[in-house]
Design a protein around this nucleic acid. Structure first.
Length: 109
DNA sequence: GGGGTGACCCAGT
DNA sequence: TACTGGGCCACCC
């Protein structure tokens, strides 16, 4: 598959993050996995780096680790936003089993 | 060109 | 549940 440029990959990541509905979340790994088909890349770590550097303009708080942990340095901010959106929390972590959202394959663009 | 770093993930202990 | 080790891959010295 035609690989996308690094810049395009960033755009893809941010675009998908913006599609995450309120009250739901996606893990870095799930994001990387969902974009793998499109971008040819699949690295959760890279998604984390992208969010750290370019996540300012999107609902970054809807992106957490696969275990429901929030990004270092922003735990308080993220927790409060998630809580106000109705995301199910278990202590200081997201209840992934209930909150994780995945883009549906045949979804209209 | 070489090596360290990181908003990760998974399996094992 | 918490911690550790190995794998991962782009970015930055």
């Amino acid at each position: 598959m035609a690989p996308v440029t690094p810049q395009e990959y960033v755009e893809e990541v941010l675009a998908l993050v913006e599609r995450i509905p309120p009250g739901r979340v996606m893990s870095y790994g799930a994001l990387a996995d969902a974009l793998a088909e499109r971008s040819g890349r699949n690295s959760a770590r890279q998604v984390g780096t992208i969010m750290a550097r370019h996540g300012g303009g999107v609902p970054w708080h809807r992106v957490v680790t696969s275990s429901g942990r929030m990004p270092p340095g922003h735990e308080r901010e993220a927790r409060q936003r998630l809580l106000s959106e109705g995301v199910p929390l278990r202590g200081d972590r997201v209840d992934m089993a209930r909150a994780q959202w995945l883009p549906t394959a045949g979804e209209p663009a």
